[in-house]
Design a protein around this nucleic acid. Structure first.
Length: 274
DNA sequence: CATCCATATCTACTTACATCA
DNA sequence: ATTGATGTAAGTAGATATGGA
């Protein structure tokens, strides 16, 4: 099985290697970046092929285009889910009809159901049979994904033809691939934020301790008069940091952590995208 | 020009299945 | 042999963009 770490590693390395201008734009808003801009798509994901490799050795390739006879046979199809539909949703069906992609309709239908043997196995119902893409198919899809994470209709059809898949299968693969990438990035971002929180908590603890010490000093009259005044807090208008009046002290703490990150973080947590 | 409708494509979520430990 | 966890292909719903009537 493909380990999560593999993909995460791939992502991290990808981000490290590609200095995408948006990579540092980590903000707490829900989705500040469009999905099409979010990731450097030329990053490498090598791990899945090993996984696919193992699997494809054990499996029959069920993804080759069905014969003409199959196409004729597969016209009537029911949803693999309990909901009755025409396999492709009404939307999808009309989409294909509109584009005149009749072959594709038939292929899509055939691809989302089993053979007649399998039908018997499932009590005559046309249940969804899980298909596995071959190692080669996955590799080509991955390569294409690295170049662009979305496909226009022409590219989709060309790729489908090249791989012996349906356009719908290619489309679905890209959709799922984008979702996986986004999920992985979310996990990476989460880890980063956790480290940020830890650092800030630690810094807060330290500052509270320091404040307590200063309060203690203030209470002892002998020492108070001799104190230098660096405890005066001023806010830098440009960066919203609170610090000493002379310069941006190393201990300054931003009121806005996201600004701080953009500034070059004072807590040196390495962001995965940088 | 504004509005409506059909279509296309996307994300998010879910389901079903294959595989492995 | 069984079972739970995991990965992934595919289905569904809803949002959005676009173009034509």
């Amino acid at each position: 099985m493909m380990g999560k770490e593999d993909l995460s590693l791939g992502l991290s390395l990808g981000f490290a290697q590609n200095h995408h201008p948006l990579q540092l734009n980590l903000k707490p808003t829900s989705s500040p970046m469009s999905n099409h801009q979010m990731f450097p798509w030329n990053q490498t994901f090598v791990s899945s092929s090993d996984h696919q490799n193992q699997q494809s050795l054990r499996k029959i390739d069920v993804n080759s285009l069905p014969s003409t006879g199959d196409l004729e046979e597969e016209t009537g199809v029911s949803s693999p889910n309990s909901t009755i539909s025409s396999t492709v949703s009404g939307k999808r069906r009309s989409e294909r009809q509109a584009s005149g992609d009749d072959l594709d309709i038939a292929l899509d239908r055939s691809s989302s159901r089993g053979t007649s043997d399998e039908e018997e196995e499932y009590g005559g119902e046309a249940c969804r049979k899980k298909l596995r893409l071959s190692k080669d198919q996955s590799a080509v899809l991955e390569d294409t994904f690295k170049e662009h994470n979305t496909l226009n209709p022409k590219q989709k059809l060309a790729l489908a033809k090249k791989l012996g898949l349906t356009a719908r299968q290619v489309e679905v693969w890209f959709q799922n691939r984008r979702a996986r990438t986004k999920l992985k990035q979310t996990e990476v971002d989460c880890e980063y934020l956790k480290r940020c929180v830890e650092k800030l908590t630690e810094e807060n603890r330290r500052l509270e301790k320091e404040a307590a010490e200063l309060r203690a000093l203030k209470l002892s009259p002998g020492l108070y008069g001799k104190m230098s005044p660096p405890t005066t807090l001023l806010m830098c208008p440009s960066c919203e940091r609170v610090g000493g009046p002379s310069n941006h002290s190393q201990r300054s703490v931003s009121l806005n952590p996201w600004l701080q990150m953009a500034h070059g973080s004072t807590f040196d947590v390495k962001h995965p995208r940088s």
